[in-house]
């Protein structure tokens, strides 16, 4: 690097040159004081790039009449500006300018350029930071155990025994641990921190909320006689809860923007619950010699909707006849 542009003993940094890999991540950052700076594959360059498509002396950065420029030094493969790959011989540099040479990229930032505000660290502040507290894990585990125990008890018409209950709960618990382990592994790979207790707390809370919301939705559907809506209400509830769960996991495990995390969470939960639901709808529409029955029953005290008269009920069933008649038509 030349000495021009140096003020006193400490040269003034006018900008930063960032070297980017193919995925756009910064691999090297060099401060630039505005004096001529040569880039290429040869070792006598100010910035050496190990790229076989870059010439030994490919381009130079310089300041002319107060203007910061990039100039191609007659390279074989050329120098290009921006992501649109417009070939340039000389180009004025602005904050954020991208220069492509060979299969490599450089990005220029003014030293005075603005940077985005700091992302909030969910592990340090906000609601999600509570997930890191030990008592939350304890509470979440308790919620999950109660939910799984209640689910096992509801399905079991026998006298409840600890041993049988435990065996009924074993597989769901293993699934929760595997789920939390997967997120911890992802977390470790992406941010060098596993955060297993946090992911376990999220998984446990998810299991608990899924169960209790499912019960609530069924209860309300029964009470108001909304049987026909139940599958859709149930699906909606599941997708919403799973979206929140995956979003919470992503907040800890990944370093991408909140909006991206949210979109990923929605897509993942729609795929996870939507795909089986679509398969189920397809299956229901396939021929079966048995009626597809999914009676929604709760104790009498939970009912609020009024009942139809026998004649009105059967009159409404007229629609079934019309549908069945339509089914015969080719």
């Amino acid at each position: 690097m030349t000495e021009s542009g140096v003020q006193g003993a400490h040269p003034v940094v006018v900008g930063v040159i960032e070297m980017l890999n193919r995925s756009g991540q910064v691999t090297q950052r060099e401060p630039w004081n505005g004096s001529a700076l040569r880039v290429g594959r040869a070792y006598d360059n100010d910035i050496v790039i190990n790229d076989p498509y870059v010439c030994p002396h490919h381009l130079e950065l310089l300041t002319e009449s107060g203007c910061m420029l990039v100039r191609d030094l007659g390279s074989v493969n050329g120098t290009y500006a921006g992501k649109k790959r417009n070939p340039v011989t000389t180009m004025a540099l602005q904050d954020g300018s991208i220069i492509q040479l060979g299969h490599s990229q450089l990005r220029f930032h003014l030293a005075s350029g603005e940077v985005a505000a700091a992302w909030k660290d969910p592990t340090r502040q906000g609601l999600l930071s509570w997930l890191g507290k030990p008592w939350i894990l304890l509470l979440a585990s308790l919620v999950a155990l109660v939910a799984l125990a209640a689910d096992a008890a509801l399905d079991n018409p026998e006298q409840l025994q600890l041993l049988t209950m435990s065996s009924d709960m074993l597989y769901p618990l293993i699934a929760v641990l595997i789920w939390a382990g997967f997120w911890a592994l992802l977390n470790r790979v992406l941010t060098h921190q596993a955060n297993f207790p946090v992911h376990l707390a999220i998984a446990c809370l998810g299991v608990g909320v899924l169960f209790f919301v499912a019960q609530l939705v069924s209860m309300v559907s029964f009470a108001l006689g909304l049987d026909a809506w139940l599958p859709w209400l149930r699906l909606l509830g599941r997708v919403a809860i799973l979206t929140v769960v995956i979003y919470a996991h992503l907040r800890y495990a990944t370093v991408v923007s909140m909006s991206h995390q949210f979109v990923i969470a929605v897509l993942a939960s729609v795929v996870m619950f939507g795909t089986p639901e679509i398969s189920s709808v397809i299956e229901r529409n396939e021929f079966s010699s048995l009626p597809y029955l999914e009676p929604l029953l709760r104790p009498p005290g939970y009912r609020f909707a009024r009942g139809e008269t026998v004649d009105d009920f059967l009159e409404q069933a007229q629609l079934l006849r019309e549908k069945a008649d339509r089914d015969v038509r080719p």
Binding site: P291, Y292, G307, T309, D325
Partner: peptide, 24 residues
């Protein structure tokens, strides 16, 4: 395929949850 419909039906002071299906 069977086409089904279900609802509460009140008769003689008793409420029933009724499911009714037909096929042609």
């Amino acid at each position: 395929n069977y086409r089904c419909h279900s609802d509460f039906v009140d008769h003689s002071g008793v409420t029933y949850k009724v499911s009714f299906c037909i096929r042609r």
